[in-house]
Design a binder for these strands. Structure first.
Lengths: 354, 354
DNA sequence: TCCAACATGGAAAGCGCTTTCCAAGTTTCA
DNA sequence: TGAAACTTGGAAAGCGCTTTCCATGTTGGA
């Protein structure tokens, strides 16, 4: 129904080939007067090239697929923002899929497979996986991706997951978690609990390993480790479970150093603080809390959340950069920095502080 | 490079037509044994249909374009989440574009045009505009969209903007703002300032009009109205400007009812609170603050923000529903509800309250 | 002045599908 | 038993582009 190149060509009194050369970047460029005529015709008819047809003819689509877990989660939306930025510069469009909504059987796992399959079907030039599940556990997904790569597609995973032939944006989850705990211990904390998040997500796993590793080195170990979703609700529930297990109640002054909750990400940490509040516990006076990511949301949050700061947008940019870069570039790496705020580990606010 | 239908057909010893009928839903379905053979061949060769080619042949792409301002903004990411959900159900993929990154000349306006043009080029079955700018101001955009609609594309705008032939998800911004102010005045507040957000965004404009309209009816008017970006930073800066203009300082007890800042959206409201905090002002004791949207982020925010609650995800779902529904369905409407929390208008916490 | 060397527009062959016709084979029923 | 009415698989014509290859027309040099 829309105007096509043939009509434009006829309207301009030139051949299809010429019209194509004028309108859609080619090595050869027709004479000035012809160029002018064709452009005028296109403008007049309101011609907009059919990207599908171009994709078919050029065998490249200008599409990049991004699969996240939950676009409404600040972690993922920040990354998505970064991806968009680079995609825009590279004149690519981004196809977005979320896995939290579930696929055929309602699981994120099936959703991820469905998303990847769809992207492959649309022949996206690259696929960025920000979901960070263990791909080894999903042979079907892995096989599809491998074939996709063999056929010239590019795959970038964010996090430590690796699949053969895929590029990877390595994130210092383990080291960051370790650094964070080191800083907290140094500030005088010694009693920790861990909200470990979902076990199947390797970012969560790496962070938890970092936490425990750092504790071990100091001869400490977490009082409790509880799982839960990577969400505010997950953090909330896990925290209630935690403080009930430990029998923590408001007003009970103890001689020990305050308890510190290590959450596998900021969103959980915020849920944790809400949970503490609901029980009348003060942060950081009664219980301290630390997160991971430094999501943009924290800018307006009080008390300031101690966390490990990751350059989320930059991660999106880097991932997209890898996705659109030549074959040869295979890896990028990001690290972050410990940021101590009021919620945990800042000596000035610790009970026994100045 | 990937396996195509021809190869599958040959491998199965059938014609191209038959293979197509077996693999990609057709009215006619070949005999069971043939069906089996073709499926086996496809499976063995790892065939994945080329969606671009299908789109060309079927003249429908299974794509829906979503243009937001900033995907990292909780307002937009919540909407995007809702859109995704419905798109998934309808077996559509979503193409995402953000306008905050700017287009050719760096403005959101050019970015919006670029995004829409790209979507038209990819022949998305529908375009959802969540950006809510005044389209009347952009004749080029409007013309493109009209043509797109004429060619069978569907356009949905969220907010009050309307373009000929487009469907619209009407949001009760004006009424909501009015209700919110009514509730606040009823609770005893009478001194208001407005953070109006960006003037070119009609959601902002409608809300501000709602605020002022409600005030007028009560014979009140805002002490100050300041603009600013629809962002935390925007709210922060606007608030500082505000309190400096009014000469508000911490510790100055006044006999008047407390000042209430009406922000055009929650994100600005949060920025406002941060600004107040930075000046040592307490919310709600010294200054009160109300927002608009009830973004999910607020769940963990303290003090609870008074706001007008909009069903953001549902809005995304409705918009996508309109986008994928038959021609005949032209409009949906959502309303929200005033939610008073600690930050403003809750009598129990007002200085002169119980 | 003539031919080689180049520039330039167009015809046509795909790219990977869908879908309309056709032709041939099967049923059905009078 | 024969014709009408279905089925069913396949050939081929697109869908809207890009790009190779040709056939011209020009230009330049000797």
């Amino acid at each position: 129904m829309p105007v096509n190149l043939t009509e434009v060509a006829r309207h301009a009194g030139v051949s299809l080939a010429t019209a194509s050369r004028v309108l859609n970047g080619s090595a050869r460029s027709p004479a000035p007067d012809i160029t002018e005529r064709v452009k005028a015709a296109a403008e007049e008819l309101g011609y907009v090239a059919n990207a599908q047809a171009q994709a078919l003819a050029r065998s490249t689509t200008g599409l990049v697929g991004l699969v996240v877990h939950d676009i409404a989660d600040p972690y993922f939306s920040a990354i998505a923002h970064g991806v968009q930025e680079v995609a825009l510069q590279a004149r690519h469009q981004v196809l977005l899929a979320g896995t939290d909504l579930g696929g055929e059987d309602g699981t994120p796992r099936s959703a991820e497979l469905a998303a990847v399959t769809a992207f492959i079907s649309y022949r996206t030039d690259a696929i960025i996986l920000a979901t960070s599940r263990f791909l080894e556990e999903d042979p079907v997904l892995a096989k599809n991706l491998e074939r996709y790569i063999q056929n010239g597609g590019k795959v970038v995973t964010i996090g430590d997951t690796s699949i053969p032939g895929a590029k990877v944006l390595t994130v210092g989850n383990f080291d960051g978690a370790r650094d964070l705990v080191d800083a907290l211990v140094t500030s005088g904390l010694s009693r920790f609990v861990i909200l470990s998040g979902p076990h199947e997500r390797n970012t969560a796993r790496s962070r938890v390993e970092g936490f425990t590793s750092a504790l071990e080195r100091r001869g400490l170990e977490p009082l409790v480790v509880v799982g839960g979703e990577f969400s505010s609700r997950g953090g909330f529930d896990a925290t209630l479970e935690c403080i009930d297990t430990l029998g923590i109640i408001a007003g009970a002054k103890s001689a020990e150093s305050p308890l510190c909750i290590l959450a596998a990400n900021d969103v959980m940490a915020l849920g944790a603080i809400t949970a503490l509040r609901s029980r009348g516990l003060q942060v950081p006076d009664d219980v301290q809390v630390a997160g991971f990511d430094d999501i943009p949301t924290l800018r307006d949050y009080s008390p300031g959340l101690s966390t490990y700061q990751l350059p989320l947008e930059e991660m999106g940019r880097l991932a997209a950069g890898l996705a659109l870069a030549p074959e040869s570039v295979l890896e990028s790496r990001v690290t972050g920095a410990v940021v101590l705020r009021e919620s945990a580990g800042t000596p000035t606010l610790a009970p026994d502080g100045a």
